[in-house]
Design a protein around this nucleic acid. Structure first.
Length: 832
RNA sequence: GGCCCGGUGGCGGAGUAGGCAGACGCGAGGGCCUCAAAAGCCCUUGCCCUUCGGGGCGUGUGGGUUCGAAUCCCACCCGGGCUACCA
């Protein structure tokens, strides 16, 4: 079919609509009527322009938001920028950029792309975490936590980069080396600020049962919190001094199987006793030269080719004393070894090689004895001299004196009770979760609002003096913390408590995850100068109805935010137990099976797509490719195909308008009209259900089917049922609007409407068109399709069976033994 | 090692309170239109037979339950992700 009508040229009208939606604040009406819905998408980090991952998350989120708005919900849909962080500082160090100017330039670039792509955010609520108006309240949050006893300072072993002279986050240590300097990161003790997230360990665990999150994220948090039940048992050093040594074990039932004893290298008892021992000092130094990340998380190998994790080589040092087993009185040789960590449990373990793989590995390596105390219930005989795999399954206690013959679970219970009675053990619950280390020796972050006074100690800065501002003249060329080395900043303060001039500011800043742990609260009133957020408004909007973002934050941002909300609830600032009621983890955009990256040269950027095909095509391609949770391989998808469909929608619309301008809304062919009206009703019912289930790919498929139906109805120019075509298009356009907002807005105007399609309603189906008098029924013999017949829709079982027997009469060879009838669907004759 | 996803045409994917497998699209082949092309439109497209009526086989593999299994159960294979010396 040829036509002289105007061609689909999205770049001719998209930018104008985008700008108008932004300038007129089309979507800043969250105070309108309707049931409230807080929709949030993880705010971007401004490291450069928007990438395809951003485009995907925003396209999914925006389709959901626009659909909710059109179906009558009052949607709160804010956006901001997570604008503090290391890349700005690195740009300053490496290229001499001003971190503030660098950050705001990137924000502006991203903002204009977000506007251009038509994402319907509320532009009256924008925030940047690096604005003093924002970090003032991040500092307030810190003071609140400090007042609640949830922020404290203590010495800890941290990742120290000796070249850049700064502490690094675990994420900034790659293969044991600083990501910037390449220097081997050391473990050094340093006094740092922590937030007491462990106070909420149990509640953070239990709360997972009440929220609608993907299982993998919940499991990641469960594993991260790492609750375990066991016992703390008191051992004693086997010499005249005889200090007590606490051991945490989840298997007190294997106490009789302990054959040696291991301390973490830095354990105080060892450090104290071995202070003068040169071998020990060398050992500790060697262990410390390997980062905690390498030791605990196992990044890289040890240079000896061993795997990460449990199979790694273990380094140990025999100490010159023994430890006494409180149950047996046996003298256990003591070791310091790197496979025991100071900050889990008590930093010391009883080693039971027969029933713990790590202990067995070390025992074999050091030639230490193995003693079996649990005999496998399946009858397998364990051989102490040759076994290389520890037995950790069910079994019966052996070699354990009075406990012999008991099931291991009973032994565990009894032995714990017996030792508790003797005062040398108590049942305990242990967590893997550690307190959150939040201080950073960085300068593009919110300064920790504390003053250190020689007489008053740690004094929080009074709220009315916040924010503690970052100086504008930081020198990023210094080796070390620019804030610490600034000539005047840290001394230009008096103690808020006693006015002492000898007080100094805390020179650390907060982790960026503190900024993002509460931003969703600030969105409730981002310009307020009186309070961080209005308590009553928070009561109405929290928890957030739908949060959308990447799974990479499973145990970081998503855990920290839960902690902050619970802490603020306990301070009376929030009336909610959880921040995010529902969570959607969108898939990633990859290319040719691999993550996109500049260095790999396989980068597709949104600009290439929307400048060629328009923003609607970019958005539609992403949503049609797969379900929101699935990854999209850009090599497999077809923007050209999406563009072709949108061109067809465009052409059918403008041709229809041209015809009706000339001849009005004639009824055309009755049969064609009826077929099209039915297709319209089917599409509305189907696509609406898909939208409700956020299955945008199948919603698009149903809209394509409707488009094909319109095409069929308009093929013969002499019989076009214009009124039915009009109804079809006036249903199609609103349904397409959440996904492709531009073409639908443009055509809506051409259909004669002077209000935005996006603020209008959702189409409703005439379901009476979907009721059939007759239905097609599948006929089966022994479960195989052997024919189909048409019967009255309300035919009963007997009628269907009779019709089936008649239709299949000449195919029936044996006796019909059984008949299965599914009304309105199927008849299955079972033949002997 | 632990946890979590997946495995359906050449490709992306539809379809699971068990009931017509492959919706929709991409790609491919053929045709119309055109001087030609682009665009657009029409037809075909899981595999194998076929006398063109149709028949057989098909959802990672092997079992099982059932009148009937992509869907439920058991065992296994493969791919991906997260996590890991956590005592």
């Amino acid at each position: 079919m040829t036509s002289d009508v105007e061609r689909y040229d999205p770049t001719s009208f998209e930018p104008a609509h985008a700008q108008r939606w932004h300038d007129e604040r089309t979507y800043s009406r969250s105070d309108l009527g309707g049931e409230g819905f807080y929709a949030l998408t993880m705010f971007p980090y401004p490291s450069g322009d928007l990438h395809m991952g951003h485009a995907e998350i925003f396209s999914i989120h925006d389709a959901m938001v626009r659909h909710l708005r059109m179906t009558g919900r009052r949607v709160l849909n804010p956006i901001g920028w997570d604008a503090f962080g290391l890349p700005a500082e690195n740009a300053a160090r490496n290229r001499g950029a001003d971190p503030k100017a660098w950050t705001y330039a990137n924000i502006e670039e991203q903002r204009s792309t977000v506007v251009r792509l038509g994402y319907s955010f509320d532009w009256d609520r924008v925030l940047h975490t690096c604005d003093p108006e924002y970090y003032r309240w991040t500092q307030w949050l810190f003071v609140e936590l400090f007042d609640a006893g949830l922020a404290y300072r203590r010495e800890a072993l941290v990742n120290w980069d000796p070249v850049d002279r700064t502490v690094l986050a675990n994420e900034q240590v790659i293969d044991g080396r600083g990501e910037r300097s390449g220097a081997v990161v050391q473990r050094i003790p340093r006094t740092q600020w922590f937030l007491r997230i462990t106070d909420y360990a149990d509640e953070l665990l239990e709360g997972l049962d009440s929220i609608d999150w993907p299982d993998r994220v919940k499991n990641a948090q469960r594993n991260w919190i790492g609750r375990s039940e066991g016992a703390e048992v008191t051992f004693r050093v086997g010499d005249a001094d005889g200090e007590e040594v606490l051991v945490y074990t989840t298997r007190p039932d294997t106490l009789h199987g302990a054959t040696y004893f291991v301390f973490a290298p830095e354990h105080p008892i060892v450090a104290d006793r071995m202070a003068a021992d040169a071998d020990y000092q060398a050992f500790v130094e060697e262990v410390a030269s390997r980062s905690d990340v390498e030791r605990v998380s196992g990044f890289g190998d040890d240079g000896d080719g061993r795997e990460r994790g449990a199979g790694r080589a273990k380094r140990g040092l025999r100490l010159d004393f023994d430890v006494i087993n409180p149950v047996t009185g046996a003298s256990l040789p003591a070791y310091a070894a790197d496979y025991v960590l100071m900050d889990y449990g008590t930093g010391a373990i009883m080693a039971v090689p027969a029933h713990d793989q790590r202990d067995l590995d070390f025992a074999r390596q050091e030639g230490l004895p193995v003693r079996v105390v649990i005999q496998p219930s399946d009858g397998t005989e364990l051989d102490e001299t040759t076994m290389t795999e520890a037995y950790v399954g069910d079994g019966v206690t052996v070699n354990s004196g009075p406990y012999d013959g008991l099931d291991w679970r009973d032994t565990k219970e009894r032995i714990t009770a017996d030792l508790q009675a003797k005062g040398v053990a108590r049942a305990t619950v242990n967590y893997r979760l550690r307190d959150w280390l939040v201080s950073r020796q960085r300068s593009w972050g919110p300064p920790i609002p504390v003053v250190h006074c020689p007489s008053c100690g740690e004094v929080p800065v009074p709220v009315e003096q916040l924010p503690v501002r970052l100086p504008d003249d930081l020198d990023f060329t210094v080796a070390g913390s620019p804030l610490d080395l600034h000539p005047t900043w840290k001394h230009d303060v008096a103690c808020p408590s006693c006015d002492s001039e000898d007080a100094v500011r805390d020179v650390d800043t907060m982790d960026t995850f503190v900024d993002s742990s509460w931003y969703f609260l600030r969105f409730l009133d981002p310009t307020s100068v009186d309070e961080p957020w209005p308590v009553d408004v928070a009561g109405r909007w929290l928890p957030i109805d739908q949060y959308t973002g990447g799974v990479e934050h499973a145990v970081l941002h998503l855990l920290y935010s839960r902690f902050v909300v619970k802490a603020m609830r306990d301070r009376g600032r929030v009336d909610a137990d959880e921040p995010f009621q529902a969570l959607l983890n969108q898939g990633q955009v990859i290319l040719g099976g691999a993550a996109m990256s500049k260095s790999k040269g396989n980068l597709v950027v949104p600009g290439e797509v929307y400048e060629t095909y328009g923003a609607d095509t970019l958005r539609g391609t992403m949503l049609f490719a797969s379900a929101p949770e699935d990854d999209i391989d850009w090599a497999d998808v077809s923007p050209a195909g999406m563009h072709k469909w949108l061109s067809r929608v465009w052409r059918l619309s403008v041709e229809h308008l041209a015809r009706t301008d000339a001849g009005g809304l004639g009824d055309g062919d009755e049969g064609l009209a009826a077929t099209l009206r039915r297709a319209t009703a089917e599409a509305i019912v189907g696509a609406s259900a898909d939208y409700d289930g956020r299955k945008y790919n199948t919603a698009i498929a149903k809209m394509m089917t409707l488009t094909n139906a319109v095409l069929d109805a308009t093929r013969d120019a002499s019989r076009v049922p214009e009124s039915a075509v009009h109804e079809a298009l006036e249903a199609l356009l609103p349904m397409l609007a959440p996904i492709c907002p531009f073409i639908t807005e443009e055509l809506w105007g051409r259909f004669g409407y002077d209000t935005s399609i996006h603020l209008g309603g959702w189409p409703t189906a005439d379901t009476s068109l979907l009721v059939d008098d007759e239905v097609e029924v599948v006929l089966q013999i022994n479960g195989k399709v052997r024919g189909r017949i048409t019967v009255a829709a309300d035919a009963d079982r007997d009628a269907m069976e009779a019709a089936a027997r008649e239709a299949l009469a000449d195919q029936l060879t044996g006796e019909v033994r059984k008949v299965i009838v599914v009304p309105g669907k199927l008849v299955n004759l079972v033949v002997a």
